[in-house]
């Protein structure tokens, strides 16, 4: 059973604001989806894990040959919602009672 508090906690972990109305619908939807996907818990798997079987392998390379510094700065910062010089501008991270 997914409680309203569970949904609040998951939404907070996901950094998503949800209204009370959304909470109710999310709770019942997720409960019904979990009810469906839980069928896999009865499958006997013999403990094989993805890592042992996966054909996908990690690709490594030397940390070298960087592109020329600054060539993408303008094009990337042009998409930022707010900027100051060559920085992305954001709200303060600590609440105001941390101010001097």
């Amino acid at each position: 059973m997914i409680s309203s508090e569970d949904i609040e906690k998951l939404a907070a972990l996901s950094r998503i604001e949800v209204s009370d109305e959304e909470k109710g619908k999310l709770g019942s939807d997720i409960e019904s989806i979990l009810g469906y996907v839980s069928e896999i818990q009865d499958v006997v798997t013999g403990g094989i894990t993805q890592a042992e079987k996966s054909p996908v392998h990690n690709v490594m390379r030397e940390d070298e040959s960087p592109h020329e510094s600054g060539i993408y700065t303008e094009i990337l910062l042009a998409e930022a919602p707010a900027r100051e010089g060559n920085f992305v501008r954001v709200k303060k991270i600590l609440p105001s009672n941390y101010d001097d």
Partner: peptide, 24 residues
């Protein structure tokens, strides 16, 4: 604050199905 900005941006920017899958 920055945290409130994350939460509000994602709350207003994502539709219902996207929120459902992220929370799931």
């Amino acid at each position: 604050t920055l945290l409130a900005q994350y939460v509000k941006t994602r709350g207003a920017g994502f539709g219902a199905e996207v929120k459902r899958r992220i929370v799931l």
